[in-house]
Design a protein around this nucleic acid. Structure first.
Lengths: 251, 251
DNA sequence: CGGACATTTGACAAGCTTCAAGAGAAGTGG
DNA sequence: CCACTTCTCTTGAAGCTTGTCAAATGTCCG
């Protein structure tokens, strides 16, 4: 079961959803699951590098990311870019613009992705028909905010070494939780520009910091896979201590 | 009507709520308003500098800020602090820890505050009894996230001058929208350490940057009030252009 | 008037960015 | 299969923004 594989397409029915079998997500009553299936408008695949939602786009839809990686970002008018957070399988895409009218950020596929698309205007129906779903959506929104909170602490108050350490640890742990770690390593499709844009650093300084950490034997990054060689040292540098895993909702 | 005044206590009944008369918030059907009133457990006042929710606190409650300013923050173990966003009248306090079990951030009163407190475990009741309220809560969560998004762009990719300009503009506009601007000026209770912690800068550099901007005649900060003397220049420096005001939900 | 706290300023050091250029990797077309 | 292009990664050097240290000034309040 490799959900990160390019050809990992969404299943026809939510009952067969492989994400739901990972044990990382909460179970839904059958009636609610059927409702989700009824408002699913279809599935979509997007190639690496393509834009899912443009900045300031008005009419975006609501998705659940099924396989692959994506990220949310904002840019300044002179092109400086900040990555806000990374989206992994199970994450909801496009909630903010349902409320703010237009997206205040862009969303881009980092790898080939497949997504389940919900019908237009189904958001209100979810709240009305199944309060449980409304609750779950709010949970996901609050959870995503906590990721952005953490990234803000990182860019605002950590130095370059600490920032890189946090990023590596955090992504590794998120992937591990949804079953995407194999033999102590995870797929790692980010290039150094992505890392720089996520951490508020320049490309060159990101490179030098990564080299320093790997020269110290803290991590290994090759063939597009990340391995944490000394997680305890990384955690100490990053001042980052994980909370115990909790089951997440999945739409 | 000065909602920022220290003695601006919550009204007994939501029907008399002065916030609802500002025109900045959506109208609620009478039945929903009565429901809100029924799950309101009381009101609380907090003095400037007091902590509303400690970092890692488990049993925090849900509030609506009625008057005064507060802020959410995170700290590293060596004391470095990052302010995540500022909370103004009408904002919901404590939603995240309802989901994550414990607060991953602290919340502190910046001025004397009064807040409406909701009953424990009333969150699920809101979603179940009145889907509209669930929808509104999600709106508020998504809206707060968009503030954090913006702050992350600012600390990650703007220089010191741009950061200060953004902060001044953004807070001015938020206050203006809820009717807290008088004669082109707003109350501004932040000290320079707060600004530094919000922008990811050192205290000294924050001071020098503020002085430079005010020497250029862009803003004036005295007697605890902020006046934007050249909003267009500030907007240009900050690369910050506001979206038209939208009505916000109010619980 | 004294004490605590916030603001202001200068000098210096450090971390990070920018510039420049080479090396490696991957894809394309002859 | 090899030249060619393009992109990513890597490294060094120089400069600038920002942080740190230290101390003076201003402000508020008892």
């Amino acid at each position: 079961m490799n959900l990160a594989a390019p050809n990992a397409n969404c299943p026809v029915s939510c009952h067969n959803c492989r994400l739901r079998q990972t044990g990382a997500f909460t179970q839904l009553p059958p009636k609610v699951l059927e409702f989700i299936e009824s408002i699913r408008a279809g599935t979509v695949t997007v190639s690496a590098g393509e834009t899912l939602v443009r900045e300031n786009q008005a009419n975006a839809r609501l998705f659940t990311l099924y396989s692959g990686w994506a990220f949310r970002y904002k840019t300044l008018s002179d092109g400086r870019r900040q990555i806000l957070n990374f989206l992994l399988p199970g994450d909801l895409v496009g909630l903010q613009q349902e409320f703010d009218g237009a997206a205040l950020h862009g969303t881009e596929a980092l790898t080939d992705c497949s997504l389940c698309v919900f019908q237009n205007d189904s958001l209100w129906a979810m709240f009305r028909e199944h309060p449980r779903l409304g609750y779950d959506i709010t949970w996901l929104a609050a959870h995503e905010e906590s990721h952005v909170d953490q990234n803000l602490l990182t860019t605002g108050r950590r130095n370059a070494t600490e920032r890189v350490a946090v990023l590596l640890m955090h992504l590794y742990r998120r992937l591990d939780r949804i079953g995407l770690a194999e033999d102590g390593a995870v797929a790692f499709p980010l290039n150094q520009q992505h890392i720089a844009d996520a951490l508020g650093l320049s490309l060159v300084h990101t490179n030098k910091t990564l080299r320093r950490l790997s020269a110290l034997g803290l991590h290994e990054l090759k063939n597009g896979r990340l391995r944490l060689l000394n997680p305890r040292a990384l955690a100490r540098i990053a001042d980052y201590y994980d909370t115990p895993p909790r089951l997440m909702p999945l739409l």
